[in-house]
Design a protein around this nucleic acid. Sequence first.
DNA 1: CGTCCTTATGAATGCGCATACATAGATGCG
DNA 2: CGCATCTATGTATGCGCATTCATAAGGACG
Lengths: 325, 325
Amino acid sequence: MAEVGRLAGVSQVTVSRALSSPDKVSPETLQRIRQAIAQTGFVPNAVAGALASNRSNLIGALVPSVTNVVYASMLHAFSEIMWQHGYQIMLSETGFDPEREEKAVATHLSRRPDAMLLTGIHHSAGSRRMLVNAGIPVVEVWDMSDTPIDCCVGFSHAAAGEAAAAFAVKAGYVRAATITAGDERAMRRQLAFARHFERLTGQRVQRVDFSVSATLGLGRDGLQRLLTDGLPKGAVIFCSSDQFAQGVLIEAGARGLKVPQDVAVIGFGDQEFAAMTEPGLTSLRIDRQVLGQVAANALIDRFRSGAVGQAVHDIGFEIVRRQSA
Amino acid sequence: MAEVGRLAGVSQVTVSRALSSPDKVSPETLQRIRQAIAQTGFVPNAVAGALASNRSNLIGALVPSVTNVVYASMLHAFSEIMWQHGYQIMLSETGFDPEREEKAVATHLSRRPDAMLLTGIHHSAGSRRMLVNAGIPVVEVWDMSDTPIDCCVGFSHAAAGEAAAAFAVKAGYVRAATITAGDERAMRRQLAFARHFERLTGQRVQRVDFSVSATLGLGRDGLQRLLTDGLPKGAVIFCSSDQFAQGVLIEAGARGLKVPQDVAVIGFGDQEFAAMTEPGLTSLRIDRQVLGQVAANALIDRFRSGAVGQAVHDIGFEIVRRQSA
DNA sequence: CGTCCTTATGAATGCGCATACATAGATGCG
DNA sequence: CGCATCTATGTATGCGCATTCATAAGGACG
């Protein structure tokens, strides 16, 4: 920067100003400085800038997995808005593991991000403490809590599970089963679904639980296991993700079972392909774009106005009825 | 850090050493320092550390899109290894846009990453210049080039297209079509496929091109358009991604067309679901895990040994034959 | 013409750490 | 016992910028 200044015949300060607030520098000087920058190929050192100004323009983002499109698309919408506001994303995957999340929180905070995005509302005590101490805006997504670290945007998983059960009963199903991945939020939906369905119909809900993430293949397995366990004809299966649901559809097809007559399916997430399967998949839609956008805007708001403003954002969900249930 | 030192009765340097090379500090002192750290909740400032040491332990990663699972899973494998080596990932999406990539390169470099990962081998002149000037290891993935910026790991898209054509001809198909997304690498595969197929059979290859990313829905559209254009019975369709291929499968099913008898399909990417569709999808497999891992290790190598070592890594591809072709 | 404000710039400082160099005590060995 | 060597620690310095305060040169105004 000093080098650029020398070339332009000004001091380092003036170069700094030319970059951060060009209107405070006379047009001719600005011109010379810009030329000197082009000439030298100068790239400002944001590390030094961050140290001096105590603002990094970095946002730390912690998601369970980027390969899961539901998190990826939320992240995409989030980073899009952040990028427009001049912020960059530091990303780590936590793999649904609180210990790993805690390590990631520590390393992220050591880089002094201006804000953090976390997935879910359940974090280790250590993570919470560090985040509170950091004194920066924190947004937790994909869930809701009355006691967020700072603010949260998501929806009620219990309400989603109940709504699915109510929908199923209203649609005339009297027998139900669930296929659930090893994800704490999915389990809460399952629980709410099963409880509500049993309360409404008096019929016990069959279940298959996996301890890992949902895949199409496991969905096929899931249906097979339910059938082995004596799933009655005409039952509806509430899947914790559309991957499972699509697997069920395919397995049903391979076995000559008609959907929804022989077996009905409700997915979760309403992913792009849900509208395109045969038959179309009935699913709970979460608007992941909106989720990411609301989260981003919540942070931007907090940058502007301190830690005031709405702390809990409910983006809700919607049941999209197609042919599978 | 000085504060921690005061509490432990030592100077700032000793605290610094206790964190970076604990074996150079006496056990008792180390003990006291650790206690002081726990007591104060001290979190080291990596920004200052980076400025002082000129090493950031940050890796910049530029991918077209995180919502596309092929890039996401490569990124996952890459960041996993980088994380193990103590590096963190700064992520930006470029959306297949060189201009946007150039901006991202500039902002990334301003944060002085220790290395960069880029997708593809085609970059703007400005991007190339900045990256070369930065003097850090750069790895380009998903493609191969004789003149990488620094090093690259990928495979030959032309060879992949040709291999698909050779496979189709050998399998007895005499008519072919392609469905291609608006992605430069996909177009190169399409071109190689069409050329080779035409050379081998003398039959012209029908084509449908989209200017956007592949989705299942567009795959359905694609088959529809090909049929409208008079796709002959028994033709094979080479899709630029498994999303398209699955769409074709579903559309064929909805129309009562038998796969592979009435229409055969070859996908690209061999995504998780390819083995699970009905019928199973024949696809070109790229090992995205290996891609990410090799890229990560190439950078680690370069950290250790300077800019020597292998510059071009061909991870190849493989045709996975299932039932769809 | 002196005072006050405005605009454009520069000098000085410090952000929090890593690094090079210095120092002091302990240990080894002939 | 004296010198070399090693271990544990400290002092000084600077990374490259943003920020604060100071300064100089013009107007505006009564």
